[in-house]
Design a protein around this nucleic acid. Structure first.
Length: 464
RNA sequence: UCCUCAGUAGCUCAAUGGUAGAGCAUUCGGCUGUUAACCGAAGGGUUGUAGGUUCGAGUCCUACCUGAGGAGCCA
């Protein structure tokens, strides 16, 4: 063990008392010197706050230590004492400061004044900053909360495949995966590429959704969820889209739309509650510096009865609003971003489930309602982030599903196993998909998805 | 992919078509406890790239590159 006595700074700040001997390792956040005393703030990422190390000239190597720059890695052994100045409960008076890794002035991370845009160009150094340290701690906590929620409710965690040959899941452009030599592609008799000579013997892509596979397990283990990476090759250039992101997709059997919505609502509240209980300091930072009023916003979601609004009602409300929208509102058309914003920000003024959309604008697998016009689905809309969750009851009736597949121009031959789930012991079931990064944006107030991913993948950029 | 905006010192930003500046950072000096410390000084530039207009371009025009915001697609 390289540094056997090392403690996490979070533990020192929380529970060390004056007189305790401690050892910490971390990176210098700031170093201020005067003639007779200098102050070094050291952060190891275990907590938002740094520990203050008080350097006095009697210390060995005082000159070298005080000439270190922001970003240097140090190991500090010393004694805790009560801090006489405001700003921190305790501080460390070191008996020894080891310079572990020096850092020169060309380091892109400095004390202040760097933009998120610039930090994206140095994504490998970003987590040293207050903001990104907090982002990745909260990301981890939120991820754990997802598993905790489902585990407490008896859900089975399913690992849906990342490589898939399902060629039409209706969720966007796919990244193709091949082991063929792109300079010497085998051609078939019809002039096209001969995928029977590819690794899997057919065309293969990265998954755009684990839902269809989650249905396999839901129709045997009843309550399941997936939580894994998802890939979309859409040329989307927005603050809310990434080519690689993580998605959570629960799937429950013996359930209808109402059960699905109840689950989604409980889930959102659980996640917020978890962050309140475990990430108080980081959330306070986001509230102060990233999105004013964030904690109030999250608290309101925690307390709120979510609105549930029929699509038909939403269209009527938009038409009756007296407002002119850039895109016309009409029954049968998709709700545009401007419409969704009006609904959550003006009409219901809270997070809202919009349910029962026209079947013509929704995928084939959604349950057809008795009215013959709509499907049993919902979009969960929140102010600012937009659509956070999309879900539906699935069509579990074989004949209806086959009819929908014909309407959508899908080849039933390619969905043999999916149809088998309807042939053998089919029961009502449903689920939803939640974009993990979108939830994280909502929870932290970070406005750009690139700033909640360690190494964001967007069109034209996979640099890290 | 479409629309709009932006690109000047390591970073954050100024600069009527007329000698490229400031703050932070860095270096040096000062300061008895700092909290984005403070005070003084110094170093630091092919103004994104390539053309064009002009006596003269950071500034105007064209193309391209990069980034951002919005839209579409969606999570």
């Amino acid at each position: 063990m390289a540094y056997p006595k090392r403690m996490e700074i979070s533990a020192v700040l929380k529970s060390s008392n004056p007189g305790d001997d401690v050892a910490v390792g971390g990176w210098i956040k700031s170093l201020r010197g005067s003639k007779n005393v200098s102050f070094m703030h050291v952060n190891d990422g275990s907590a938002f706050d740094s520990v203050q190390v008080v350097l006095e000239p009697s210390l060995d190597n005082y000159g070298r230590i005080t000439s270190l720059l922001t970003g240097a890695g140090v190991f500090v052994e010393g004694r805790v004492r009560e801090s006489p100045a405001k700003g921190q409960r305790i501080e460390i008076v070191p008996s020894r400061v080891e310079i572990v890794g020096e850092c020169d002035a060309s380091s892109p991370v400095q004390k202040s004044g760097t933009s998120f845009e610039f930090l994206r160009t140095v994504a490998h150094m970003r987590p040293r900053t207050n903001t990104f340290g907090a982002v990745f701690r909260v990301r981890s906590a939120l991820s754990y909360a997802v598993h905790s929620f489902f585990n407490e409710r008896g859900f089975v965690y399913a690992h849906s495949p990342i490589l898939t040959t399902s060629d039409c899941e209706g969720a966007g452009e796919m990244f193709q995966v091949t082991s063929m030599d792109l300079n010497k592609l085998p051609m078939g008799p019809d002039g096209g590429i001969d995928y029977t000579r590819d690794f899997f013997g057919e065309r293969c892509s990265l998954t755009v959704s684990g839902q269809l596979e989650a249905e396999i397990l839901a129709l045997s283990l009843s309550k399941v969820y997936t939580f894994g990476p998802t890939f979309r090759a859409e040329n989307s250039n927005t603050a809310r889209h990434a080519a690689e992101f993580w998605m959570i997709e629960p799937e429950i059997a013996f359930a209808d739309l109402e059960d699905d919505i109840a689950l989604a609502g409980d889930f959102v509240k659980y996640l917020i509650r978890y962050l309140f209980d475990h990430c108080e300091r980081d959330l306070r930072f986001f509230d102060e510096r990233i999105e004013k009023g964030l904690i109030g916003k999250l608290g309101a979601v925690l307390e709120a009865d979510f609105a549930v609004l029929e699509y038909t009602e939403a269209v009527r409300a938009l038409k009756d609003s007296g407002r002119t929208f850039e895109f016309p509102v009409d029954w049968g058309e998709s709700l545009q971003t401007e419409h969704e914003r009006y609904i959550t920000e003006q009409y219901t003024k809270r997070p809202t489930f919009v349910i029962n959309y026209p079947r013509a604008i929704k995928p084939f697998y959604m349950y057809c309602n008795d009215d013959g016009k709509t499907v049993a689905c919902f979009d969960f809309l929140v102010p600012r982030v937009g659509e956070l969750i999309g879900g539906s009851q699935r069509e579990h009736r074989l004949e209806k599903l086959l009819q929908r597949m014909r309407e959508c121009g899908l080849d039933a031959e390619k969905y043999g196993w999916y149809l088998d789930l309807r042939r053998f012991g089919s029961v009502p079931h449903g689920g939803f998909g939640l974009g993990f990064e979108r939830a994280l944006m909502f929870a932290t107030g970070m406005a750009n998805i690139r700033d909640v991913c360690l190494c964001p993948r967007v069109p034209g950029n996979a640099a890290f």
